[in-house]
Design a protein around this nucleic acid. Structure first.
Lengths: 240, 240
DNA sequence: GAACAAGCTGCGGGTTTACGCAAGACGGCG
DNA sequence: CGCCGTCTTGCGTAAACCCGCAGCTTGTTC
């Protein structure tokens, strides 16, 4: 069995290396990559490898890397190992998981025990292992209760990119008014009004900009999500 | 000599611990804190301690912690040890450094050697040590060449918070028109127009929202900066 | 098939933004 | 002092945004 470790931080990388050795005696080769680009390359060379992947790397982040890897070989098993459980990450990951693929999402704050268990479950037993905390988010966010619909999330990203209503309408093939409807929905769910009106009519907010702020503060958006959305936008712009 | 380590990540914490022991044989006590809040408390108890501080911690980030520590004891020597050199961090730090205080800013990607050197320089020799890369940013951003004026940065933060022009005017004691002038200046410097007009008049951007996006992508803003700005805003709102 | 919920769309109008134009205000500098 | 650049402010306008109202298309349920 081969395991590929894709991780920025040298300390974390060697920690992972040890953990893999301890948890998987049947593993004979461990390969390390220090960023997403190298990770993709090594994954291509060592086809049979299972992967432990950090999200949030400077050069090319884990979600991007995982996407291209899964595109080439959807049955690859990937364990995401991340510092954060931002909804933006969770959403980003579950958007790219191929049907039926075995994967995992474990926080760096988890105990050694948990990490080793996850390694065995995924790489040996082909089971999905999602940290409790992450799992909670996933259900709340993807289930519509209290969470955001895909269409709401979509328009959130669009205004976060700085598109005008008209541009969004074109991009999503909607009428202007529909776009604005969705925006209202979004403002509603984000509680943009609460702070805006409140009691004092002083502290007035620009709804659109405020929605973005709140989304960031609630970790619905983060740098990595923005970055991905931006490159998608550029592709769309180029493709006409 | 006492050294206080304030750092989220257990791996990094123990690495730092070792580095301090190796670099500073005259140091007899090393104390560890796993977040900003505890860090502040321990700094208060061990008044004479020098501090190594991570930025970006979940509970209370390094800049906040450093600010209260420096407020109580401005001569404290603090070495910031961070993964990133975002302009938002650099700005955040240099805004709170007391006059004449010795401090340092070293990236986690620096070599052992660099870290140890920095430890000695700051804690023994009271010299400021700023990583080359960070230094570059600092000069470019604080010097007006190509960088952003304080007033420009201020208004950037204000729109990122989601305030309306009118609200900004009140907050900064300006006329509406002046606020809008500064916005235009900002849009100019951020190159918001470029993409907006370009050749195709299709891809139109909402200037205000787009400015925020670009600022994030360029790391002029990040989560921590937003968070700080938001609490400041709330204080201002409460204070009327 | 009737009833109902959910989403898309057009119309109309009140508010906010973006910005050109131009008249002061302030501070250096020869 | 007079000249000049930078900053502030007011006025006015075109565009964009926010949103209530109302008519349509769906899909679901009984």
């Amino acid at each position: 069995m081969k395991v590929l470790i894709v991780e920025d931080d040298p300390l974390h990388r060697s920690y992972l290396h040890e953990a893999v050795n301890a948890a998987l005696p049947e593993c004979d080769t461990v390969i390390e990559a220090e960023n997403g680009t190298v990770g993709e390359k090594l994954a291509r060379e060592h086809k049979s490898a299972h992967i432990v992947m950090d999200l949030q790397m400077a050069n090319r982040n884990g979600i991007e890397a995982a996407r291209t890897i899964w595109k080439e070989r959807p049955e690859t098993r990937i364990l995401f190992w991340s510092n954060y459980s931002d909804e933006a990450y969770v959403r980003g990951v579950s958007r790219i998981v191929p049907d039926g693929a075995a994967y995992g999402y474990v926080l760096k704050s988890a105990s050694d025990e948990r990490l080793k268990l996850a390694l065995r479950s995924i790489f040996v037993e082909s089971q999905c292992v999602i940290d409790r905390e992450v799992r909670g988010l996933q259900q709340k966010s993807l289930g519509q209760t209290n969470g955001f619909t895909d269409s709401e999330y979509e328009i959130l990203v669009d205004i976060a990119l700085g598109l005008t209503d008209r541009a969004i309408a074109r991009r999503r093939s909607l009428s202007l008014r529909s776009v604005q409807n969705r925006l209202q929905q979004l403002y509603d769910k984000l509680d943009v009004y609460q702070a805006a009106s409140d009691d004092n009519d002083d502290g007035r907010f620009n709804l659109r900009a405020r929605a973005i702020t709140i989304a960031f503060l609630r970790k619905l958006l983060n740098y990595s999500a923005l970055e991905r959305a931006e490159t998608e936008l550029q592709e769309w712009l180029d493709g006409k």
